[in-house]
């Protein structure tokens, strides 16, 4: 099998690149680390927005819950740095998933635009609550424990943990989309009433999907809070205007409803954004805004969606057999 050998070689090559990147380009380690975070954002958003057809503008909520839950656990547990971070991150993921399951009871009953609008308030409300709650530092936010090691080691540590999280998210979703659970998500996206009339458990499906999305986002929040070092309620944890919007954009840019689309979208978006910051300082927000408009106008199907339309044969779509 030549195809299979080439595939293994490509995977091995990509794996080596991921391992070697921080040593090949040490100046960019932090940028790479944020790229992994962006990939998690786009993948988890697409699970809901692309595969299930529920455009959530409130997924940032789960990121923030993860960030705060982990930071509180690290502050109060009295455990060592790594133990507290590991347990705190898991706790963040579980709490975020539980929050999604609970909120899903009410909000997932809304359809289409109503769901999108219903979720819009989530992140904003959470930011306001966290900003007024002394237990989590209120408006002055929370700091996380210092990393027990050198600065370079700290960079590498977060590079690899976030890379591992992005990989775990990707592999989980890849597996999921290969099962009939993935088909059921698409069925709800295409015609929810039909799916219900065919006896599918649509409410449980939607809740399970949102909880899974929230789980990975919660862990990413826990890690990102520690990576950034300071958790501000509105600018980091519940940063709806930045992270919250980016996760939607990256998935749409790459191609909604595909496995690789969000990954590609995250990479293109992140790199473009860094270039804007570097070369168009002062205008970077304008440039980003124009990019967003251009994406929606010229690539409504995203990069992968557009390629798939142009070259259907390369994506496994078959021409009509007569």
């Amino acid at each position: 099998m030549k195809g299979r050998a080439a595939r293994y070689a490509a995977v091995a090559g990509a794996g080596l690149l991921v391992l070697a990147a921080p040593f090949l380009a040490p100046a960019f380690v932090t940028q790479f680390t944020f790229l992994w975070l962006m990939i998690v954002f786009a993948l988890t958003w697409d699970l809901m927005g692309g595969q299930l057809g529920y455009n959530s503008f409130g997924n940032i909520l789960f990121f923030g819950i993860g960030a705060y839950a982990c930071a509180v656990f690290q502050r109060d547990s009295g455990l060592g740095y790594y133990e507290a971070l590991a347990i705190g991150a898991a706790l963040g993921g579980v709490l975020a998933a539980a929050a999604a399951a609970f909120l899903g009871l009410g909000i997932l009953g809304l359809r289409g635009h109503y769901f999108a609008i219903g979720t819009l308030g989530l992140g904003i409300a959470a930011g306001e609550i966290a900003g007024g709650w002394d237990y989590v530092g209120a408006g002055s936010g929370m700091t996380v424990p210092l990393f027990p090691g050198a600065l370079a080691a700290r960079s590498l540590f977060f590079y690899f943990t976030l890379a591992a999280l992005a990989l775990a998210t990707f592999l989980t979703l890849r597996w999921l989309y290969g099962t009939r659970f993935g088909l059921a998500l698409n069925a709800v996206r295409d015609d929810e009433d039909k799916a219900e009339a065919m006896g599918l458990y649509t409410a449980r499906l939607k809740t399970a999907a949102w909880s899974l999305s929230a789980f990975f986002l919660g862990i990413s929040g826990a890690l990102a809070g520690n990576l950034i070092g300071f958790i501000d309620p509105r600018d980091v944890a519940f940063a709806g205007a930045t992270y919250g919007v980016w996760m939607v954009l990256m998935a749409i840019l790459g191609g909604k409803g595909t496995l690789w689309g969000p990954v590609i979208g995250a990479a293109v978006f992140h790199i473009t954004q860094e270039i804007f910051w570097t070369y168009l300082l002062g205008w970077q927000r304008v440039a980003l805004g124009l990019l967003i408009v251009a994406i929606v106008v010229f690539f409504p199907q995203g990069i992968l969606g557009t390629l798939r339309e142009k070259f259907p044969g390369r994506f496994g779509s078959k021409a009509e057999v007569q």
Binding site: R180, A184, M198, L200
Partner: peptide
Amino acid sequence: RISAPDVKEGILPLF
């Protein structure tokens, strides 16, 4: 595939 009868049993059979 997604219309198979066992999808009416719950979400676990989907896996």
